[in-house]
Amino acid sequence: MTHKDKIISVARETIEIESKAIANLVPLVNDEFAGAVEYIYQSKGRVIVTGIGKSANIATKIVATLNSTGTPAIFMHAADAIHGDLGTIQENDTVICISKSGNTPEIKVLVPLIQAAENKLIAITGNTDSFLAKEADYVLNAYVEKEACPNNLAPTTSTTAQLVIGDALAMCLLDLRGFSSKDFAKYHPGGALGKKLYLRVSNLTSLNEKPQVSPDTDVKKVIVEISEKMLGVTAVVEDEKIVGIITDGDLRRMLTKADSFNGLTAKDIMTENPKKIANNAMAVEAMDMMEKYGITQILAEEKGRYSGVVHIHNLTKEGII
């Protein structure tokens, strides 16, 4: 076996081990899991997620997922909690504690403190006979048969299982809350995904010049308009309505066909009934139309009146493409 073949073999084996472990979690989701989800959903407080070691790393990801899908959550490192950060937990907060073994020293110290404050405790653990599992109000079983590590030591499969249980928890809460794409956009306003959900055509047309000529505009002035507005296009407008479009491609084609453009006007070279989009449409709809028709600009209108141009560069700059 070559070095490359060995690498491919180990990688595939790792993925197979972890994928099987995830599949084995399906029958472990039970009434207790449902009870934990319902308790968090009905709770007036936040979700505090804690752990130690690699489980702490997983806890930070679960917190991020919960926050982004409508469930307020905070990460608290288990070691820091018993050295001053226990004040993170407030009345009505629910604590999720993640631990593969459920028997680490920090967990054994932390759990009684949580219980003393009368906060509900949810365990995500692969050991249902552990100290953590026995003391928790709800146990979410993240059992795995073995780690992907050949020595069965490095947390690999176990942390993947913890993450999947956390994702399942978050998605159940998302479903109960009726969390929509609009809600998602509200929590992700700066990302490309969020922009696809909230950015409108009007947000883009306002960034550009508004090139326009009338049907009777001399071709020389058409060229100047396209050049000055720097969008490679101009709308042909009559009584505020779009009647045609002229692109720089139209100008090039005109030059190859005509010996002279003296006397030519916009209506002689324009494309009638161009593709248009409503000014209040989503920007992603403009992108879809550009891809469908193989164009790089599209004219926008508001209540039947010309309102501007969306250029493919606008979509690229906003990260939508």
Rank of each mutant, 00 (worst) to 15 (best):
T50Y: 00
S43C: 09
T2Y: 08
K20M: 12
I17S: 01
R46V: 04
A11F: 03
I15A: 11
R12M: 10
V49L: 05
L28Q: 10
P27Q: 06
Q42Y: 03
V47N: 04
I17A: 00
R46G: 08
P27W: 04
S19K: 10
G45S: 03
V26L: 15
V49E: 00
I40G: 12
V49N: 01
V29A: 12
R46F: 11
I40M: 13
K44I: 02
V26H: 13
V37D: 02
T2N: 13
N24M: 14
T2A: 07
A21S: 12
G35A: 13
A23V: 11
T14I: 05
I7T: 14
K6C: 05
A36H: 03
F33G: 02
I40V: 14
D5K: 13
A21L: 08
Y41E: 15
Y39F: 14
T2I: 04
E13V: 12
L25R: 03
D31Y: 01
V37M: 05
I40Y: 02
N24H: 12
R46I: 06
T50L: 00
F33I: 04
V29N: 02
G45R: 01
E32G: 10
T14H: 13
G35I: 11
N24I: 12
E18Y: 05
D5W: 08
L28R: 10
T50F: 00
R46S: 13
S43F: 04
S9H: 14
R46M: 13
K44A: 09
G35N: 12
R46P: 09
V49P: 03
A11H: 10
K4I: 14
V47K: 04
R46C: 11
E38Q: 07
Y41H: 15
I15E: 04
G35W: 06
P27K: 06
R46E: 09
Y39K: 08
N30C: 04
